[in-house]
């Protein structure tokens, strides 16, 4: 076990965990930020997606102890006093079914739109291809990403 500091959603927090503990489990079990979800643990589903220095990363596949110098944003940190444009789009189009994968979808979409503010459909499909939705709400995710892009422009 070792102790280290992390910066999560703008707050400095100190954590005690084994060096190999993935960020996912530190967020969920130590910091009680359970919005970031576990789906596969091997980087295949995207449910655990967070932003590390603004870039979408799979929190199940990075040890938290390596991120002491980074800014980490989770789904809980995305809305300030109001919802982000991506969240707004998700709400407007009533995207979720069970809802479990959606935090990861929203985090992936948010970082993608930062890099590509006016994507076409094929680009949206490719960007979101790595995030599984077992309920298959894919049509609405696709539309919501396009709507969010519009809202941000």
């Amino acid at each position: 076990m070792s102790s280290f500091n992390l910066k999560v959603n703008g707050n400095k927090v100190s954590v005690t965990a084994d060096d190999d503990t993935p960020l996912l489990w530190v967020l969920r079990d130590e910091l009680n930020l359970v919005g970031t979800k576990y789906g596969c643990g091997i980087g295949q589903c995207g449910a655990c997606t967070v932003h590390v220095d603004g870039v979408a990363m799979r929190s199940c596949s990075i040890p938290a102890s390596r991120l002491t110098d980074s800014d980490i944003t989770t789904i809980e940190g995305l809305a300030s006093d109001k919802l982000s444009p991506v969240q707004e789009a998700w709400k407007e189009l009533d995207v979720p079914q069970c809802g479990y994968c959606q935090a990861g979808q929203i985090m992936t979409a948010t970082s993608f739109l930062k890099q590509n503010p006016s994507p076409d459909n094929e680009e949206i499909r490719s960007a979101m291809h790595g995030n599984l939705c077992r309920c298959a709400s894919y049509n609405r995710i696709e539309k919501a990403v396009a709507l969010a892009a519009k809202k941000m422009s």
């Binding site: 979800k37 789904i75 809980e76 969240q87 709400k91 009533d94 979720p96 809802g99 479990y100 929203i106």
Partner: peptide, 23 residues
């Protein structure tokens, strides 16, 4: 008439909702 999912806000802001979130 369309009514959006009643758990919408919680889902998209990552609030605890699911069994895995319970402690």
């Amino acid at each position: 008439k369309d009514a959006i999912n009643v758990d919408m806000e919680k889902i998209i802001t990552g609030q605890p909702l699911f069994g895995l979130d319970y402690t």
